[in-house]
Each structure stands twice: as C-alpha cells, then as structure tokens.
Nucleic acid binder design. Structure first.
Length: 297
DNA sequence: TTCCAGGGGTAGA
DNA sequence: TCTACCCATGGA
C-alpha cells in the first residue's frame, strides 16, 4: 500500500530528517541506503503498520514523497487516511515557513543553512509522544534519552506483527497500565517515571486533552501555561513543545544552548540568562529556528 | 568520589 | 519572583 504526499518547495527531506534528534528516537529510524524515514505506527483501530517515507520526485513548485505502508492485512481507506494525516503532521508538510525564509534571507550565514528548504523539524504523531520524549531529554545526556525511549517502546509498545522486534510508541493507556516498578527498574526512567506515568493516566482517563492542543488557536502564552501544568514540564520542556506545536517565538534554554551561545557570542564568559536569550531577539516569531540553525552551523 | 548531562518540583523567603 | 535543595541514572 502507498500514500502520496506533496509539499511546497523549498524542501530538503533528508536534511530535514537529520536536523532534529527525534529521527534517532524509537520508533523512528533513518534508513541510509534508501534515504528513507522508517516509522512504526499504531492506528486508532489498534493495528500496527510499518511505514517508509522517501522522496520520489519534484515539480516546479513542489516536492513529492511516497510512503510505503506494510501491515498484517490490507488497511482500510480510513486507516490509510490516518497514516497520511500522521505523516503530514510529523513532517510539518502543512506548516507555513514563508515569513521565516524571507527573514532568514536577510542573514547570509543563516540563509546559507536554511535556504534550500530546512526548518520542518521532525515531530511525533501525537503530542503525548512528544511530551514523553521531551521529559526524557531533561537533566540527562542524549545517549540516555535514546535508551529510555527505546526501552519504553520495547517494553510497552505494540509489536509490528511481521517483525515483533519493531514496536510502536506506547499509547497513554499502555503507559498508565505499566507497573511503576517496571518503569523504574527496566525502563530506567529515574525520577521521570512517576511524571510520565501520571501524564499517561491523565490522558488515558480523559482528564487531560493533550491532542486537542495540536490544532488549538490559543495564543502561545496560554498553550505554555497548559503545558507547564504537566508535572515534569518546566520552561525548557514547554518551549520545546511549543516548537513542536509550531510556535517558534520562545527559546528552550538548556545546557547545550548555554554553552553554544556563551562560546559564540560572549567570549566564553557566561552571561545572565536574560542577556543570553536576547541574542535572538531580532528573530521575533522565529527565534527557536534561528537558534536551532545557529547551533547546527 | 564527585560532578553533571539538551531540568524541574518544592519549600521558604 | 528568587533561591537552595533534592531528585534517579550513568558516564567522565
């Protein structure tokens, strides 16, 4: 089965996949030989599919992608539509970057980085998955983050029938049903375990509508307030998640940003946070992306 | 041993 | 609003 996807140019698919660490987190995987994003998805029907996305061509104004879908049995039109919608969200194919590009065009160094179509940073199909992954990046190393997410998927996610070693990201109900001891001793989430389990419970019982925030017209400040009401989500995580929701006006200040900005703009002398953040003031609504590609430069 | 990683919760001022 | 202190885990 196949799903066709179209996105306005400029768009550099392979580079965009590489640009955000989520590509290294289960159940995502980059397949070098075929230059494809591989992803295991559990659909609302409960069925699990293996999806491979790659570029097939381009026209004057658009890039064309194709997703090959494999599942135990053939999927319904509704299920394929869900996969298409998941992929459009994950790759941000419907986000508008024109004003970012026109601003970036005024900065030769940044333009050199993003002009060919970067900026559509990878995200997860559900906000639940992005919140959990983001909490797993706090106060730890990237290496441990990769391990925590991998074990969450392996211990709790539903298997892809044809290759049970591949699993989908666990649903809120699956995480909520997990024994706290499993999250602690096997998944090794550390003190994050109770936060993640509590969130899963809130979402699974309908107490918290996370996915409703995805297409919510609320201003960023209000979204931030709701995100910060999740235990384990502070300023850094909330700003990372605002980025996931398509709001780039807030910077996620972490040890990495601190060290980059201190080195690059303050001669190695650590500035106050206010001063540090002010470096990107002129980018207004696009601060996050301006910083992100400054980091990758 | 101690420190600290792509921080955050809590209590006390 | 700001500050100290605590929090699991694992590598340096």
């Amino acid at each position: 089965m196949r799903v066709e996807l179209r996105v306005d140019k400029p768009y550099d698919f392979a580079q965009s996949m590489e640009d955000y660490g989520w590509i290294s987190l289960a159940p995502c995987r980059w397949v070098e030989e075929s230059q494809a994003l591989e992803h295991v998805q559990q659909l609302s029907s409960g069925r699990v599919a293996l999806v491979q996305v790659r570029v097939t061509g381009e026209s004057d104004s658009a890039a064309h992608l194709e997703a090959r879908v494999e599942a135990a049995a053939s999927l319904s039109a509704v299920e394929l539509a869900e996969i298409e919608s998941n992929l459009r969200w994950m790759l941000r194919l419907d986000e508008e970057f024109a004003s970012f590009y026109s601003l970036a065009a005024g900065d030769p160094l940044l333009w050199q980085q993003v002009g060919n179509g970067r900026g559509r940073l990878l995200r997860s199909p559900s906000l639940f998955e992005d919140v959990v992954k983001t909490i797993c990046t706090t106060n730890t190393t990237w290496r441990q983050t990769v391990g925590m997410v991998e074990r969450l998927v392996q211990f709790l996610g539903s298997p892809y029938p044809a290759d049970p070693g591949r699993r989908a990201f666990p649903t809120p109900a699956q995480v909520a049903a997990a024994e706290p001891e499993l999250l602690q001793k096997e998944v090794r989430l550390g003190y994050r375990g109770p936060y993640i389990r509590q969130l899963a419970e809130e979402v699974a019982t309908g107490q918290r509508d996370l996915e409703g925030l995805k297409c919510n017209p609320l201003p960023a400040a209000e979204l931030k307030k709701q995100l910060k009401s999740i235990k384990g989500v502070g300023d850094y995580a909330a700003h990372t998640l605002l980025m996931a929701l398509g709001h780039y006006s807030a910077l996620a200040l972490d040890s990495e940003m601190r060290s980059l900005v201190t080195r690059k703009y303050f001669n190695g002398q650590p500035p106050a946070d206010k001063e540090l953040l002010a470096v990107y003031d002129r980018w207004g609504e696009w601060k996050y992306l301006a910083y992100w590609f400054d980091l990758l430069t």
